[in-house]
Structure formats: C-alpha cells, structure tokens
Design a protein around this nucleic acid. Structure first.
Lengths: 252, 252
DNA sequence: GAGTGGTCTAGACCACAGA
DNA sequence: CTGTGGTCTAGACCACTCG
C-alpha cells in the first residue's frame, strides 16, 4: 500500500502507541482484549499479539495472562552519577537510590543481603583477588519504589578490606559505605563506570517484572583509592525503560 | 516439560546462541536456512523465525531476505566520555570517533552536513534560543567504521555564537569545534550527558543497518561555558549492541 | 526464475488470574 | 470454570537477492 509497506503488526503497534500517548487508553487502564482489537482492525489475533509485544518491549504496556494488557505509568527515574556519591547526598543519611526515588514522591524499599562469596571472573580481575575462593564480601541489594522493582545492585569488596569491619554488617552506619572506606584508609578518590545494554537474565527479569524482550542497563561501577587500587566494584542492573542516566564532569 | 517450561522459540534461540558462541556457526558465516533448522529441531519455520528474531534483536545475527542469516562479528566499541573531550585527544588532529575506531584497526568514515535549522523543542530550551525559527547551526555527522555504520551525531550551536565563524564551515580547523569555542570566548568548562535507550526511528534504523527490534543509546550531550550558559547540544545515536560507554570522575 | 526470509491467517491448545 | 494472553502449527503469499 505505502511506498515502503510497513508490516501490519508494526502499523497496529503504531496505532495503539498513538492511542496510549493521546490518552485514549490511559495509564493504568486495561486495553481491549486482543480478539476485539483484532476485529476492530481487521487482522488476526496473532498480528495484534505481535504488535503488543512491540509495545511491551518498549515498556509502554504490561500484558498479564488471564487479566489483560495494562498501560504502564512510568515517569523515568533520573540517576545522577555525580551527585550520587557526593558527600551532601550521602550525609543526608540515606543512600543515593533513596534520594532518587523520594524525588518522585514515592517510597523506596531496599532488601539487602550480605555474604562472603566467590567473585565473578571480571570482578576478581578488577579487584586483584582470587576468583577461586570466597575472597570478597558481596552486598546484594534489591530496590523498589513502592511496589515497583527498579534495580538490582551487587557490591563486591575485597575481604582484605572488609573483613571484620562495618562493611560486612547490614548497617554500614552514617554516611554509608563510602564513609567507611575513608575510615579504613581506603578513601575512594575516583569512580569509573562502564555501561552496556543487554537482555535481562531470567532471574533479573523475574525480580524486575520484565520480559526477556526488554533491556537492562548493566553499569559496572568501580571505586579507586589514592594508590590507584580498585577497592569496590558494584554492578547495577536497571530496566532501560525506567531509568535515564546522567553524567557530568568538568573540563580541565 | 521443565519446571518453568521455557517456550520453544526461546529454547531454540538458546540453542542457536550457544552454537554461535561455541563457534559452530562462525562469525561471518551463514546459518542453515530456517526450513532446515525447523526440520532439525522439529518445530515449524515460524518458531525458528521467532527464535532468530531474538538473536537479531540482540545483535548476534543479521537476517537478509533472499540471502540468509549471517553471524555478526562485533567487538563492541569503547566510548570514553572523558578522553573524548581531552585536549590530547583532540589535538592529535582527528576527532574522538576517529580515535575510537582506529583503536580497533578499522578505518573511520564521517559524512558531515552543516546547515542553519530550526532546533528541536528540547534543544531550543536547553540553549535558550527560539524554537520557531532557524536559530541554530546544525552539524550532522554520520559515522562508520569501514563499511559498518556506527553512529549519528547532530550538534546544535546557537547562531549567535556560530554565525560567520568556522563553526559554520565544513572544516572547523585544528583542535576541532572545542578549540573554536575557546577562540570565540565561549570556552566549554563543563559537560553533561543524559543517556536513555529507545528503539531507533525508521531513518536511524535504515542508516545504522538495524531492525526496529534493536535499541539505540540516545546521548544528549551539553557543553557549558564559564558563565553557566549551554553553548552546544549534541545528540548521539548509537546501536546499543555495538557500543560500551565509559565514564569516570574524581571525587572531591 | 530459484532461493530464502518476512508476514499473515485460521485454528488449536495451554497457562495463569480471578470469581 | 471462565476470561485473556502465550505459543504453536500448517499453509500461503510476498519481497528481496542473485545467478
């Protein structure tokens, strides 16, 4: 029909996307069932299903078997990498995630699990610790805003630094981890973050309430002390459709 | 069958992904045709096609109608945000992209188009210029390594700064744009980048040789002068499966 | 024109939510 | 038990590549 004949299911996706953006299907509401949409648009349900998969991959809707397809409400969350680790933010007593979520008027929730573990290869290499034994303390956090899961973050700290310190306990005390590092003579003076995008693992998809067609950011965050030693590696996993990341730096 | 019964097409995708990673299907080679895979794995071609769409969305393969499905060869490219704008890099005479690509032993290619245009709303707001007239100079670049398209970047500069200067010409001279800003009394002292992930537009997909199921980074890069004025906004669009982004900063 | 992927249909059955 | 999405099949036709 058109010059470049866009496939039907993409056209259907376009139509439904427009309706969502126009508010015809409002945030939180349920779309007509696939059979009805198929009838209305004169295609088969399979085609509608494919179209909805596109919108779901974009994070616009959430399909639930037995219930229906719901329009998501999603003001993306801003993660400001620089503020995150600034003293002022930390000393407000709560973590960076806490601040980001409260900025949206929502209630943060964090589950923390601390353990001694065998580090993943790449982490072991970065930290310069053995990859064949429990050479690090891991602090695994699962974070949500209200009931919406938003992020998984796992910090790895060499046992040589963390052993017997507050870094191995649930509550790291005032100022959090970063302040503890300073106390321990390993003040972090430089941060690097390496960022990529990939599909979630099945576990990640499950906790983050995602499908495998959606994508996560994987941020490999490394903290360095004054001697140039990596003293912390944290891997953040976040759904791309729920986060916007901000970086900033001064030119010298 | 299994505990959590993974759908057939995902299982097929898993099998094929393994074969690619194991080298059974090597980089650059053509996979067996969908009919054959369907026969081998005892599913219909539709199921194989769905599986391949997963791998294609991940950037692992490229399907070409009439030819076959080819395994991609893709060492992801590193973009280091800090080095990018460092004097040393720029004064090597070539741009940052140039350096990034040559680091992989490949030949960079850049097409540049300079024009006076009406800025997009968001850019106009950031730069503090009118959004209803040609108030900016745009420098649109399409970048490739050898014959692989890798990035689209469009810089917007207020006409009040660029008018009649080297910033409006094809060749911005030694040190590139950043050095010109300094000459013009608008030295950039601070950079911010705002990063999100989205599907490519049809145009972007076309130039970047992507499908709409793949994803791009959209990096909104802003340069600020000493007076706190935004003097440049550049929007970078890059396929997520071909780039890893690096950021780094010092804690004060 | 032959080869191969892209899409669509009609129909079927399954899995999960909820009354 | 009913409603709704998830997936699969068999078959068909189209679109693009290449000889």
């Amino acid at each position: 029909m058109n010059i470049s004949t866009r496939s039907q299911f993409r056209q259907v996706a376009d139509i439904l996307r427009q309706r969502i953006e126009a508010g015809t299907y409002s945030a939180g509401s349920v779309l007509p069932k696939e059979d009805d949409l198929a009838g209305e648009l004169s295609v088969t349900r399979g085609t509608v299903n494919n179209a909805l998969k596109i919108l779901e991959a974009e994070g616009l809707v959430r399909a639930i078997r037995g219930k229906g397809t719901i329009v998501r409400e999603l003001p993306p969350i801003m993660r400001n990498a620089q503020n995150r680790y600034a003293k002022a933010t930390r000393e407000r007593g709560h973590g960076a995630f806490d601040v980001e979520v409260r900025a949206l008027g929502r209630e943060p929730r964090i589950e923390l699990e601390v353990a001694r573990v065998v580090p993943p290869q790449s982490v072991a290499a970065a930290l310069g610790v053995p990859a064949d034994q429990a050479s690090v303390v891991s602090r695994a956090r699962r974070m949500s805003a209200d009931t919406t899961p938003l992020q998984i973050a796992v910090s790895y700290i060499p046992l040589s630094i963390a052993e017997g310190t507050a870094l191995e306990t649930q509550d790291t005390g005032p100022g959090g981890m970063i302040s503890r590092y300073t106390d321990l003579g390993h003040q972090q003076v430089r941060i690097t973050e390496q960022l990529s995008v990939r599909p979630p693992t099945q576990d990640e998809a499950s906790f983050l309430a995602m499908t495998e067609d959606q994508r996560v950011y994987e941020v490999i965050h490394t903290g360095w002390d004054a001697s140039g030693q990596a003293v912390e590696v944290t891997i953040h996993v976040m759904p791309t459709h729920q986060w916007t990341l901000n970086y900033g730096w001064d030119l010298t």
